[in-house]
Design a protein around this nucleic acid. Structure first.
Lengths: 192, 192
DNA sequence: TATGACATGTAATCTGTTACATGATTAG
DNA sequence: CTAATCATGTAACAGATTACATGTCATA
């Protein structure tokens, strides 16, 4: 019973990664190379993942691909963000962090944060970090409580694995604190 | 062109999580509760994920579900590991760590490690940790090198995000070192 | 002329998400 | 009797993986 006006563009993690990278116009092949050769290896560089994802974003009107010829090689389609795409990126970055976002690894948060400064400026990065701190506080409490319950129950390898998860979240907290002090010195704007 | 004898059971992450949890026989509902209420929230607790996954594992002959009645409520199917299931679990845990396993978050490694002691004993846990250390050494070098290249290029939010990834891997290294010292004191056996 | 890097795409298949359907038992 | 909890499942759909198909250009 979804009304047309309420129909909202649902975008998976890969979609946001592509939107963020397309702050600089690029071809599908360029994006594949980024995924295969840099720290963004988290995303598959397979053509079967990227080309369909780009096609979906284009169908949603968030990016636009134009054929570029003349540079000698096979034709390339260069993709660029549309105004709607930029708006979607901004919306995604500005959203507050939910507790659930901390549960399944920190990669998604880091993707958002990485793009926050070029898209919305340092003030938005700071806001994201503060939102992270607020969400982290009750989450860490819950994890520590769970560790106390778990301690006597599970084998020590299970307990050690849990402890790593706790420590990674504690690391995130320290990282956020330090990043905040980096940012609170000066702020500048993002996209116009 | 896959020959029948070569045909190998391919198991996704959720499948291994279920196999490991089924060291203690449980119903689908029991497993859902574990995913919804404990630190294993990484996995969806939705019936649409778990019941089909259990059905696949059963079709592969790795688990066996038996209807249990009499306890008053609606019938429950209790699942147990078969000998083939136990063998598959052992094979998974004993496999050496690949560099690729470090790239996409550390959750998969931690799942393996958590089950290593109950399934194969402390000696296997130790071996896994040493394999981790060996894989981590070149990986950390590569990350540090990439950071040097990235530093002047990306916005500071991007650099900070990358730095978190590096620090999480350094944390993993320290955690492994400490876990090794926990284990090297004494070792005991796993499943018979 | 054959190989390899550049470049884009499709098809089959598998898995997970969301939403729905069903039914038994207990507590209020 | 009604709601909540226990308990198992299915169906439609979206997204990812794997493998394949195609084509250009440079170079050995």
């Amino acid at each position: 019973m979804t009304s047309l006006s309420t129909m909202q563009t649902k975008i998976p993690s890969l979609g946001y990664a592509l939107l963020g990278l397309l702050l600089k116009p690029a071809s599908g092949y360029d994006l594949r190379k980024i995924f295969s050769s840099t720290s963004m290896r988290t995303y598959s560089d397979s053509p079967g993942a990227i080309y369909p994802a780009l096609a979906r974003l284009e169908k949603q009107g968030l990016i636009r691909g134009t054929i570029e010829k003349g540079s000698g090689l096979r034709r390339r389609r260069i993709f660029r963000l549309t105004p709607r795409g930029i708006a979607e990126l901004k919306k995604w970055i500005a959203a507050p962090i939910t507790l659930g976002e901390l549960t399944r690894g920190h990669e998604l948060f880091m993707l958002r944060f990485a793009f926050s400064e070029p898209v919305l400026g340092a003030a938005a990065s700071l806001a994201l970090l503060q939102s992270l701190q607020a969400a982290l506080k009750p989450y860490l409490l819950a994890l520590r409580k769970e560790l106390e319950i778990l301690k006597p129950v599970v084998a020590s390898s299970g307990r050690l694995a849990f402890e790593y998860g706790l420590r990674a979240s504690e690391l995130l907290e320290r990282w956020a604190q330090q990043a905040i002090s980096t940012y609170s010195k000066h702020s500048n704007g993002g996209l116009p």
